[in-house]
Design a protein around this nucleic acid. Sequence first.
DNA 1: GCAATGA
DNA 2: TCATTGCAACGCCAA
DNA 3: TTGGCG
Length: 317
Amino acid sequence: MGASELRLRVEGHEIAVTNPAKLLFSDDHISKYELIDYYRWVAPRMLPFLRDRPIALERYPNGIGQVGFFQKSVPSYFPDWVKTIEVEKKQGGVTRHVICNNGAVLVYLANQACITPHIWISRVDKLECPDQMVFDLDPSADAFDWVRAAALALNELLQELTLSAYVKSTGSRGLHVIVPLKRTESFESVRAFARAVAMRVVMEEPSQRTLQQRTGSRHGRVFFDINRNAYAQTVAPPYAVRARPNASLSIPLFWEEVRSKTLRPDGVTLRDIRKRLDGMIDPWADFWRRASALGSARRKLELLGVSVRVPQKAKFR
DNA sequence: GCAATGA
DNA sequence: TCATTGCAACGCCAA
DNA sequence: TTGGCG
């Protein structure tokens, strides 16, 4: 296992794989080559969720047992066939991000020890308007039954509002609930809507659910994180590998699976997934045909007595 | 992971 | 040539 | 304004 190197040809691009045998998940003996091989295999399913979005890289060059880092800006040594986009930061300045529209880029990123590529929830041709609304349900401790119940309650309300919601494991400790959107609303109004929905679901079971972002204020409850619904914020996409034991994955689920006590948020791994997907219908097959506008849903929500307003930043003088 | 730096 | 070092995010919100 | 948080 020396500093060997091999070359892969992916979609017409020659990619040098450095240190293929290096263990990125040392407890599980999962090498960088195995990560690369996974992303090459999963690319056809995963790429629709990456396409035309700025990407942030979560990298672990020395494996998940060592410190890793987030990387947004594209290093100058990336090859020119890796497409990029320059985006404005909210507080001024610009950053040039990777766009991952093909398997070659996904493989190249994996060779960079990018274990998880994180996506924006808006696309390059309309960065100010998200095409999905994200609810990240995160337990404080090992309370996954509460997460399942919270996700089901959230889905029930979203259905009442005639919104289509999709659920996936995070590959970590929680679940993601995603509503595909038409790109007609700003991040501020989408976030305000998500906050109002989350507030209502939290109030149904306040001893199990919270909107408190400080961990010390959660008291064991499930945190409804709606703050990913913001400009330049990112979320782990479907099929992403997580920097967790067993190389667990974020995986699309059927709502019916969320009713099962045996569901685990980290139960499918880089090594398991082929047998899960074999012959299985895609739970998210209709995702891109189900985009909603929020207008009528907002009116229905207000009829339920929930105020949906964008908090105004105080600005005197 | 990589490029720049220095021994 | 080899070993070391520096570098690689940012927005929301509550305190 | 800072710093926790994801």
